[in-house]
Design a protein around this nucleic acid. Structure first.
Length: 417
RNA sequence: CGGGGCGUAGUAUACCGGUAGUACGUCUGCUUUGGGAGCAGAUAGACCGAGUUCGAUUCUCGGCGCCCCGACCA
């Protein structure tokens, strides 16, 4: 798209009330807009990134048999009363509201109860299992303190998948498949090397769970990392017993700050028991469905990527999630020939299925380069008098800055690969 | 929820018990044009309410909002 048409603009300074690097850069670059504490809107560039992240997650969830749905954010108290989680001391982040007619409603913090009830309508036999259902859906959590930019907000989209299995063994198999899918996801979005499966507490559901923690000083969590094995233990469960179970020694671990970018945990029969989700096994005996839940917050993931991969000039997007694969910049100095050539290259890219962000604005080169660095698209193409004289297009990488003049055909080849 | 801090043009800031100055942005003009250009002109501001006072953006109280530390985080 032509940058002159983009309604957002960059700014040199971040608002003073933003301290978190992720929010500072994303606001400066025009990716997000803060509505209030803990609530951010996604603008054109930001939405593109978020969508790219969601699509990667979607592909990997589909690959392990996930079926996508969308549930409502409005929730009926009745289901939550069955599991005894309507109480504010059971879930302290509830946003509750009421109908004009007087009845109470909850705004979704999570979806175990309604989905379990929904699945009960379709699951009755062992032949109906296992099933894996997920969604990208808005959660509302009335956090006492929103913080860290888009990392801890009161309204956010979460990918939550729930598994429904016949047995603990069957559940376990999927649990590990999902863990493997998560590893792929974090690798694809560019933070694979610094993200580690982390042994954690199971909260009120089970003895244990697994988190995926990305090393980052801005993180809220503290983990004990075993670099050799590529695993970590959350500080919450950093005990001799756990270390023994995992076969690791204290001396081999380093304490680091990290951001929880995903988690997976067993639910057992906590919700199937409460809401009556059962199936008949092959002997005709009624059994509770064994469940698990698997979450990733695409927004938090986006914030984490900014925290971890940006530099002093701005954001550095990994190729797979960049808002555009390439940033085309004309350095025309009012020269109509250069404008014409840049327009032609823009069309050429389009014809080859490459959607560029085309900085066609009539401003000085320095400003364009500074904006491009801030926005962070990984590949930059420059068309100028110089490149026209040399008979090619200048290509450079956001990350290493190396530039080269290459032919049009080669440009297209490079971007595709 | 405990503690701390802060609310001044679109953004970042300054000064002041006598109605506010600078920079960036935006607009006009001229000059410039490969790393956020220069000159000239213009635009635009005290969170809300009450109190003290001749007079409050400034002081006091309350409200609202925002940030940070801690607690919390299904």
């Amino acid at each position: 798209m032509r940058q002159s048409q983009l309604f957002t603009k960059t700014r040199k300074l971040a608002p003073k009330d933003e301290v978190a690097k992720n929010a500072q850069l994303l606001i400066r670059a025009g990716f997000i807009h803060k509505e209030m504490a803990g609530a951010y809107s996604y603008l054109p560039l930001g939405l593109r990134v978020l969508t790219n992240i969601e699509n990667i997650i979607r592909e990997e969830m589909n690959a392990i048999g996930g079926q996508e749905i969308t549930m409502t954010a409005l929730q009926s108290p009745a289901l939550w009363k069955k599991s005894d989680r309507w109480r504010d001391d059971a879930i302290d982040v509830w946003f509750k509201t009421e109908l004009k007619s007087g009845g109470e409603l909850g705004l979704a913090t999570t979806h175990e109860e309604p989905l379990t009830a929904l699945m009960a309508e379709y699951i009755s036999s062992y032949k109906d299992l296992p099933k894996y259902v997920y969604q990208f859906q808005t959660k509302f959590r009335n956090e006492l303190r929103a913080k860290s930019g888009i990392m801890r907000t009161r309204e956010f989209v979460m990918k939550d998948l729930y598994s429904f299995s016949r047995s603990e063994e069957e559940f376990r198999t999927f649990y590990e498949q999902c863990a493997a899918a998560y590893v792929k996801i974090f690798k694809r979005v560019g933070i694979g090397q610094m993200t580690f499966r982390t042994f954690a507490s199971g909260g009120s559901f089970s003895k244990y769970s697994d988190e995926f923690q990305t090393l980052c000083d801005a993180g809220e969590d503290t983990v004990h990392l075993h670099r050799g094995k590529g695993i970590a233990v959350n500080k919450e469960v950093y005990t001799d017993e756990v270390l023994a179970d995992l076969g690791i020694k204290k001396e081999e671990l380093e304490e680091v700050k990290a951001i929880e970018v995903g988690n997976i945990f067993p639910l057992g029969t906590r919700f199937s028991d409460a809401l009556g989700l059962t199936f008949k096994d092959d002997k005709g005996t009624e059994q509770p469905v064994v469940m698990g839940s698997y979450g990733i917050g695409p927004g938090r993931l986006m914030g984490t990527i900014v925290e971890v991969l940006s530099d002093e000039k701005g954001i550095v997007w990994p190729k797979e999630i960049s808002p555009f694969p390439v940033h085309l910049i004309s350095v025309s100095s009012g020269n109509a020939d250069v404008v014409g050539e840049a327009d032609r290259i823009y069309e050429l890219l389009k014809e080859n299925g490459i959607e560029a962000l085309y900085d066609d604005r009539d401003i000085r080169a320095g400003e364009k380069f500074a904006d491009a660095d801030l926005i962070g698209i990984p590949t930059r193409l420059v068309v100028s008098e110089k490149t026209m004289t040399e008979g090619g297009v200048e290509v450079s990488g956001r990350q290493n800055g190396a530039t080269a003049i290459v032919s049009e055909n080669e440009v297209i080849e490079r971007i595709r690969n």
